[in-house]
Structures are given as C-alpha cells and as structure tokens.
C-alpha cells in the first residue's frame, strides 16, 4: 500500500517529536541535584535537551535520507532538478526557528528569575533604593555585607543574589590556590564550606590575586571571583552530603588542584559543627590571630 507523502511526513514528524521528548525526559546527563535551584535548572535542561534532540535527529535524518536516496548510481549521468528556491519554504524555516528561540529565550529567562538571577543588586543606585525600601530584609543583608569586611558603599557585582533575610552569610576569599571560608557570626575560619540543609546561604566572595570561579556542579551554580570586584552568590542547599567546590577559571599552574568540599549537613549537625569549631562562645571578643590559628586546624581544636 502506498502511503501519501503528507501523511507519511506527519507520522515521521510525530515520531520524531515523541522520541525527542522521550530522550529529553529519560536520558539523564546531570549529576545529583543538591540545591533548591538545581531542579529548576534541570527542568530547563530537559526542555533544551528535548528541542535539541528533535532538531538534531530531524536534520541528521533528513541528511542521511538524502545521501542514500539521491546518491548517484553507477552509470548515471545528468543533473538533479533545477530548483533554485522556494519563498514559502524559506519563510517557514525562518519563522519556526525564530519562534522556537524566542520561546527558549523567554522560558530560560523565567527560569533565571526563579533562580534569583534578576535581582538588580549589582546596580548601585537600584541597590541603595532597595536598601531603603525594604528596611528589614535588605537591611539585614546589608548589615551582613558590612560585617563581612566590605565597605557598604562599594559596588556589589551580581551573581545569583539573596532572597531571604535569615541567610547564613559566609565570606569567601579565593587565592592561588585555595578557598578560605570565614563565618562572621561564629568567627570560624575553614578550608571547607559547611552549610545547613534548607537554609539560604549568601557567599560574599573576593579574590586576592587573580580571577577564580566558585563552582559546585551539584548546585548548578557558578560565579567568578574577581579581584577588586566583590561578588555575591546565594543558594539554598537541600540534600545533605559532600560535594566538590571547583575553581573553574584558569588561575595558574595549580588551577586543577584548586578544589575543596562543601558539606551540606542536617541543621542540628551543622550547629554541632559550629559549636565544636567556634574559637569562642559567641559573645566574648577574641583576637583575630587566635581565632585564625584555632580555626585553620579545626580537627586539633
């Protein structure tokens, strides 16, 4: 039985779309998700993967079909058909990709907003206004920033920005070839990042020498740490466990070795870690040298 060409094309198209959707939903290429924005990211990834799979399979299928179907048989001479163009067809394959990329762009922007990326914290004027408007929330964040040793009138460069007032603030210093984490509340200084699950964390990052980048693949987050331009990164860890922190910007000979661990702990375990490693009970003042000496080797204290 001869199936008419339009019907055949429709069937092939439907099979293509379905298999693309199936691939996007079922082929998992990503590591475990451990922060609240990772599932949001994975949603975007699945959409992009599905669209990409449909396009790639369709185009390669068409190409391979053409190469087989229209190959020159032995002894065959002459040319193909003298077809120089087709305006409706051109309009179709201009319009469809335009709509697809517009959809993808808007959709990914929505995702980005849900991840907190659209807070205009890096524009100083807007930032100041926001500070005044949201006295409680913004003020707490600002206080944390000032406490972090960064002048409050300094321009803050964006990253993923904090959305919550009860965020755990950690000062991150990147240098060749290590990250140092300092907890302003408890004066802990550590080479490993410990965070409680379920509570927002705001990292205030600065670099001492060259550009580094803070990347946790399981959080789907990365932010460059730039000398002279403090950056801010916030996230909410969700899944207890140990994940790598990786420097993702070439920073010198030991760049590949510049990595440490973020330990996401249950809140009570985190409290235990804090009280175990805190150089002093919180109220009493402490000289920084002692604090540093005690915290750099938390295992011995």
């Amino acid at each position: 039985m001869l199936i008419p060409a339009p019907v055949l094309s429709l069937i092939i198209g439907m099979v293509l779309v379905l298999s693309g959707l199936w691939i996007g939903q079922n082929v998992n290429l990503l590591p475990v998700d451990a922060s609240s924005n990772a599932p949001v990211y994975d949603e975007l990834f699945k959409v992009l993967f599905s669209i990409g799979a449909i396009l790639f399979l369709g185009i390669v299928g068409l190409l391979v079909f053409s190469l087989v179907r229209f190959r020159r048989r032995p002894g065959e001479l002459g040319d193909g058909i003298a077809l120089e163009g087709n305006l409706p067809l051109e309009i179709v394959w201009t319009a469809i990709p335009a709509i697809v990329v517009l959809f993808v762009g808007i959709y990914s922007y929505d995702i980005y907003e849900r991840m907190g990326g659209m807070v205009p914290l890096n524009d100083h004027a807007v930032h100041a206004m926001q500070h005044e408007a949201h006295g409680g929330e913004g003020g707490a964040a600002m206080a944390a920033m000032a406490g972090g040793g960064i002048e409050s009138d300094e321009r803050i460069w964006g990253g993923i920005t904090p959305a919550s007032a009860d965020a755990l603030t950690v000062d991150v210093t990147a240098m060749q070839f290590a990250f140092i984490f300092r907890y302003p509340d408890s004066e802990i200084i550590s080479g490993e990042l410990h965070v409680p699950a379920g509570r927002p964390v705001a990292l205030r990052m600065k670099a001492n020498d060259v550009i580094h980048a803070f990347w946790v693949p399981q959080f789907r987050l990365k932010q460059d740490v730039i000398p002279g331009q403090p950056t801010l990164l916030s996230f909410t860890p969700t899944r207890p466990g140990s994940y790598p922190i990786i420097c993702a910007e070439l920073c010198g000979p030991y760049h590949g070795g510049m990595r440490t661990t973020v330990v996401v702990e249950e809140p009570e375990n985190f409290q235990a870690w804090v009280s175990k490693n805190s150089p002093n009970p919180p109220p009493a003042p402490v000289t920084p040298v002692v604090a540093a000496a005690a915290a750099i080797s938390p295992l011995q204290s």
Partner: peptide
C-alpha cells in the same frame, strides 16, 4: 549549534561555563 543555543541561555551557561 544546538549546544550553542543552550549555552546562550544564562541559567544553562552558569552551570557549564568554563567546563
């Protein structure tokens, strides 16, 4: 080109940039 369009999306790129 397909991976390029994906990379153009900010949230996608934030994970895989410099990898």
């Amino acid at each position: 080109g397909i991976t390029g369009v994906a990379l153009a999306q900010v949230p996608f790129d934030i994970h895989v940039h410099d990898t």
